[in-house]
Design a protein around this nucleic acid. Structure first.
Lengths: 208, 208
DNA sequence: ACCTGAACACCGTTCAAGT
DNA sequence: ACCTGAACACCGTTCAAGT
């Protein structure tokens, strides 16, 4: 087969297959040859649609960010909007943890990432926050969300109980995994509440 | 050359060279062959000292964590200790950003990571925080520190000004890079202050 | 325009052979 | 015990050849 009259690949199909592969088996499992096999073509065919593998990864990352709901910024006061956006951002990234290392690097040139930054920053500035503080708040929210999505805290400890013999306070560590969702959610919600409550207090004091 | 009478390699020398390579050129530059070349041996020689490349990466990560100063937990009240530890943790990770994706996965079986967790968790529990809250606070601090060290917020935006024509609020984005240190530090310090202040308030209210 | 096979310069890891 | 060369099964990417 050389060129078929109907193209075998589209950017959309490639991104879909790549996303599924990353979600199912992780970033390391995404190789151009493996992805091509999944799409029933040969590796080099992908280069007719993307210039590099990195561009494919970026497209996967942006498809995830586009799922984040920023609509609250149009309909709620800044603090409630921030809370709703952060929860959506957190939920989306927690559903796709394998791509988080890419998202944690920032929006770069990705349209979805830039659109999200525009919505957040615009809403904060419109609410009266200084440019500097609006930037800090946007950064801080990204730190919290990517930091929590990047690695489950509760699953970050090896389950071998014997490992903790030398650490008197860590006896419960190997059993954290059993309720890791509650632990990770609890930590995120605590952080979100502390940040928003603290920001609201400062806002009302006029230190914006 | 077969076996020399004095071993050419030690685990220490391998970790040192690997750390230097990761710091200078990033995790992707760390290949067994490249690392071996740096040490004037052949690739397979490394396997006499480490079982897998992953074990080498873990050793590099733990060498970084061991630099974090946890001594404040013995000498200061929990809130001040938390603040001092977090700043040290942040400074160390910011000095070695390329290894942060590994650290963000948790301590696993790494002794340095476990020792740090022991110090933090122990101090919080001793101060009167519940097991659940102590876990949440430890998680939260890791989220903030790894999230901020993983990718500079200010450097996460492409510098091409034309890119921002469609985003009315992001006109300053390409110039964030000029003062990225101040921006990233400001966001981290804001976050740290909001978290500790909020935790202190809850502690004093008795909700531990 | 778009897919292919062949090729290049890489990977991590195994293993028998050497001292 | 520890280093080596050869080998295996992989990588990302280029490119001329095909329709």
């Amino acid at each position: 087969m050389a060129r078929p009259r109907q193209a075998l690949l589209t950017r959309e199909r490639i991104v879909e297959a790549a996303s599924a592969l990353v979600d199912a088996e992780g970033l390391d499992a995404l190789s151009t040859r493996r992805l091509a096999t999944e799409l029933s073509v040969q590796g080099p065919s992908l280069y007719n649609h993307f210039a590099t593998k990195s561009d494919i990864v970026d497209a996967v990352a942006d498809a995830v960010i586009e799922q984040v709901d920023v609509s609250a910024f149009g309909t709620f006061p800044w603090d409630e909007a921030l809370r709703r956006w952060a929860r959506s951002y957190h939920a989306v990234l927690s559903a796709h943890p394998n791509i988080v290392p890419v998202l944690a690097q920032g929006p770069g040139r990705r349209p979805g990432g830039l659109a999200m930054a525009e919505a957040v920053y615009g809403a904060l500035v419109d609410a009266g926050w200084s440019y500097a503080r609006a930037t800090h708040i946007g950064a801080l929210m990204r730190y919290l969300v990517t930091g929590s999505a990047l690695g489950s805290f509760a699953l970050g400890f090896d389950v071998d109980p014997q490992l903790y013999d030398r650490y008197p306070h860590l006896g419960h560590a190997p059993r954290l995994a059993e309720h890791h969702e509650a632990v990770d959610e609890g930590a995120f919600e605590l952080g979100l509440d502390l940040l928003i409550t603290g920001l609201t207090a400062r806002y009302e004091m006029g230190t914006r």
